[in-house]
């Protein structure tokens, strides 16, 4: 990081330019109005300063034409800002289908990062250059917020929910990672670095850091250890439905509705099985609340995802799922 005085933040993702463009546009309009109005006030204040104690200026009641002018013009300018911001917001919000996934779990006061191949990091996140990356994020305790200024992105992590964000880094370097939502005593210590690497360096780093299993393998192991496998058999002969080809599909529920089997749904099935019952099955599945960590859950999810051949690599659901959806009930 440059030590000399910066006026503008580093920019290292393809989404950053759109944000900066909006910022500069509003800045331009603001400076224009701020300077214009200030000059008008100063000019009037000097030009019409009181010259004698008994002068009484002629009253002016107002002018409808002026009122309309200074209502409509600012309104139109404001609407143009709205449109500009919303377009960029939507673009920065919806991840492309081919994005690679990285999983983030916040906890007082650190960021735990898991890559699909099993590599884990704390407070550091390595990502390749020029490849869309989608983060699937949650927290073990309170709300935190994953903030990467150089990407102009942040997103809260909320207990009981998966939130997502995506970016495509376009400049190699080391960038700040902050927690932006106040989360307790060491909030300001919940910081780290994002490393953007050339594809080749990234691959080298990945293979150099692999220890043990991929997320999917870890998930499979958990699936067996927790006894999921006794009820959920591949050939659908267990007490529970088979989980093969479930992810990303619509599931018919007992109450007649259907729901999309996304990350949040699987999470809920494991922690609060009774809240959505698959049609044709009994309320038999025990809750695993307290027996599985947030990271473990993400591993199980990535295992269940791998059972669905048709689910795109990126996982269909998370990017589209309205993030406001309650994970709870």
């Amino acid at each position: 990081m440059a030590k000399d005085l910066q006026l503008f933040p580093d920019s290292a993702s393809i989404g950053a330019a759109g944000v900066d463009a909006n910022y500069l546009y509003i800045l331009g309009v603001s400076v224009f109005f701020a300077v214009g109005i200030s000059l008008a006030i100063l000019y009037f204040a000097l030009r019409y300063r009181r010259k004698s104690q008994d002068e009484i200026p002629k009253p002016i009641h107002g002018s409808l034409v002026l009122e309309l002018t200074w209502t409509i013009i600012p309104f139109l300018l404001a609407m143009s800002m709205f449109v500009g911001g919303t377009v960029v917001f939507f673009r920065n919000y919806h991840a492309p289908a081919n994005a690679m996934e990285v999983f983030i779990v916040g906890k007082q006061w650190m960021w735990k990062i898991q890559h699909p191949n099993g590599v884990r990091e704390i407070n550091e996140m390595h990502v390749p250059l020029n490849r869309p990356v989608k983060l699937i994020m949650t927290t073990e305790d309170v709300i935190h917020s994953y903030f990467i200024p150089a990407f102009r992105l942040k997103r809260d992590v909320v207990p009981g929910q998966y939130t997502t964000m995506w970016f495509q880094a376009n400049k190699v370097g080391k960038y700040h990672l902050f927690c932006a939502e106040y989360c307790g005593t060491q909030h300001s210590g919940m910081i780290g670095w994002v490393h953007v690497m050339e594809e080749a360096d990234y691959e080298a780093w990945l293979s150099g850091s692999i220890r043990g299993e991929t997320m999917q393998q870890a998930g499979e192991r958990l699936f067996n250890r927790l006894g999921c496998a006794t009820c959920h058999k591949a050939d659908n002969t267990g007490r529970g439905p088979t989980l093969v080809d479930v992810f990303g599909k619509a599931v018919k529920l007992q109450n007649g509705t259907t729901t999309l089997a996304d990350e949040a749904y699987i999470r809920e099935s494991v922690l609060k099985p009774a809240s959505k019952i698959v049609s044709g099955y009994a309320v038999e599945m025990p809750t695993f609340q307290g027996q599985i960590s947030e990271e473990g859950l993400l591993q199980v999810i990535s295992y269940i995802k791998s059972l669905s051949k048709s689910a795109p690599a990126g996982g269909a659901a998370a990017s589209e799922a309205p993030a406001g959806k309650k994970g709870g009930n």
Binding site: V19, I26, S30, V88
Partner: peptide, 20 residues
Amino acid sequence: IGGLTGLFCANVAVDVHIHD
């Protein structure tokens, strides 16, 4: 200045960056 900078906050794309 306070009111004009409200416009930055009202713009969702910019606010994602400057929030908090």
